[in-house]
Design a protein around this nucleic acid. Structure first.
Lengths: 152, 152
DNA sequence: TTGAATTATATCGCATGCGATATAATTTTG
DNA sequence: CAAAATTATATCGCATGCGATATAATTCAA
């Protein structure tokens, strides 16, 4: 390596484009999600609920790779907007069970506009998209594996 | 498409793994950057300064794809830590010129430990890394192109 | 079986990101 | 050349993310 400092050049980092693209995506979603009165993080929580009907907070945290200190206040906001309901699992009172309200359920159809609006904003080929998707999930899976190893 | 709602399933989003991996990367950097008393965003600012010697805020914002409302307070913190100095460009007093202090410059060698420490945390092949890098920069470049088009 | 460990949420403090807005310096324009 | 527009920073308010810590419910263990 010519320069001792090659490894700390911004252009040689993989982390930076990941970080910048992630910010970029969130920025691009904003105008579309404003229509639903959702932030990006609130949107991915709602996506899970539109699929699952009933989820507890722990599972939500694991699925989204977030900690409860991010998710708890976020759920409070979704509750205040009238999109979700919170209740305790009678089997184990520690578990928070989250379900959609009628309003939250109704939002599902409106949400179909979001991916439509985003489609034109990401100019990748089908193949590039698939490759990107697979590499990213590989990274997430590795991380999860690490987590499990650390627990042992 | 079988299900009308396929497009809003979390698993069918490209944005989500991007978002989750970006968070994951930042989490992984934290213990390494704590040694330098830097956050991740502060670290990428310092990387630019270690390369450039002298940068103004506008260029910094463009390079990092961030707005001044993120970068201005961040520079104040780096100044308080004694890593950078701020001055005005005499040619155009609007421009903020940022340079490293001796302490900031000295941190460069210590920073070489950071990519060393990260290497083992990303389990991608050379090829996967290159592919990921290229696709991400393609996305960033498209975005920049859009920006220019909008300006016209 | 009861005190200790574990687990699931919740709270606190700090550092981003960013839209909206304010301010100061420079450039454009009529 | 003076007012208007533009440009570069700065400030404000809100919504994350997360490490550290607190609290309540459950499980484990002596």
């Amino acid at each position: 390596m010519k320069d001792k400092y090659e490894s700390i050049r911004l252009r040689n980092q993989l982390c930076f484009p990941l970080y910048a693209v992630s910010n970029m995506i969130t920025r691009n979603y904003k105008p579309l999600l404003d229509e639903l009165d959702l932030t990006y993080t609130q949107y991915i929580v709602m996506m899970i609920l539109w699929e699952e009907e009933k989820v507890n907070e722990k599972l939500l945290c694991e699925t989204l790779c977030l900690k409860s200190n991010t998710v708890t206040p976020l759920l409070k906001k979704l509750e205040n907007k009238g999109y979700i309901k919170k209740s305790k699992d009678p089997e184990d009172e520690r578990n928070l069970v989250i379900t959609l309200t009628k309003t939250g359920e109704a939002l599902k159809d409106k949400a179909l506009e979001v991916p439509k609006g985003m489609a034109c904003r990401i100019n990748l080929s089908k193949e590039e998209t698939a490759t990107l998707y697979n590499i990213l999930y590989k990274m997430l899976d590795e991380e999860q594996k690490e987590q499990r190893l650390i627990k042992c």
